[in-house]
């Protein structure tokens, strides 16, 4: 296990150095995107329209933040991760088209996303579920909010972050998926546990 501090824009070469179980901290620009923002971004791409922000080398965070406006300035109050599996629907195309390098969320992602990460060079960073204060502390500034018509949680928040983490690399750019490894081991344990319990 190694600890890396990454600055956006992150290069493919840097991301390919990371391995599952490494811990990363991201500094620079991170955008939030949940189901609706993923869908819209892919629609934009299909129609040949440019996204409001060039996502190449950036981090995308599966998160619906609580943001408040003080004197015309947005402030992130809480920003815990949401369950990433919902974004499995879009993430492979998202990585392919926009070249994001770090996908952040909780609970892990599936085969399709893992394959795209291997092919195009990206990693999945697991952020602790519920650790909303820790996340908010690392968010230094709201640079802009795009697609606010989608609602506060679903909008694309463009954030300046400093040492955002710790993120455990749970899917690397070499096809390794820590969540799948754990699930496999858990399945192997299941019968042993039944036996021990006499169940």
């Amino acid at each position: 296990m190694a600890i890396y501090k990454l600055k956006t824009p992150i290069s493919e070469e840097k991301v390919r150095k990371l391995r599952v179980n490494d811990v990363i901290y991201v500094t620079g620009i991170m955008i939030t995107a949940r189901d609706a923002a993923h869908r819209r971004a892919l629609e934009f791409h299909k129609e040949g329209k440019a996204l409001p922000v060039n996502l190449q080398g950036l981090a995308v965070f599966h998160c619906g933040p609580i943001v408040k406006k003080d004197d015309d300035k947005w402030m992130v109050v809480a920003a815990g991760p949401t369950t990433s599996t919902r974004m499995d629907l879009f993430e492979d195309e998202f990585i392919k088209n926009f070249k994001v390098r770090v996908v952040i969320g909780k609970g892990g992602m599936g085969k399709k996303t893992t394959n795209a990460m291997k092919k195009y060079g990206a990693v999945y960073g697991a952020f602790t579920g519920g650790a909303a204060v820790l996340a908010a502390k690392a968010i230094k500034k709201v640079r802009s909010v795009e697609w606010y018509d989608l609602g506060m949680p679903e909008a694309m928040w463009v954030l300046e972050v400093e040492d955002f983490g710790p993120l455990t690399v749970a899917i690397d750019a070499h096809g390794n998926n820590l969540f799948e490894d754990v699930q496999k081991k858990v399945e192997e344990e299941r019968l042993k546990i039944y036996q021990k319990l006499g169940a």
Binding site: K106, L178, D181, E189, R190
Partner: peptide, 11 residues
């Protein structure tokens, strides 16, 4: 705890 799921499911 012998399932090995662990904190946040990361083992």
């Amino acid at each position: 705890n012998s399932t090995g799921i662990g904190p946040m499911g990361l083992g």
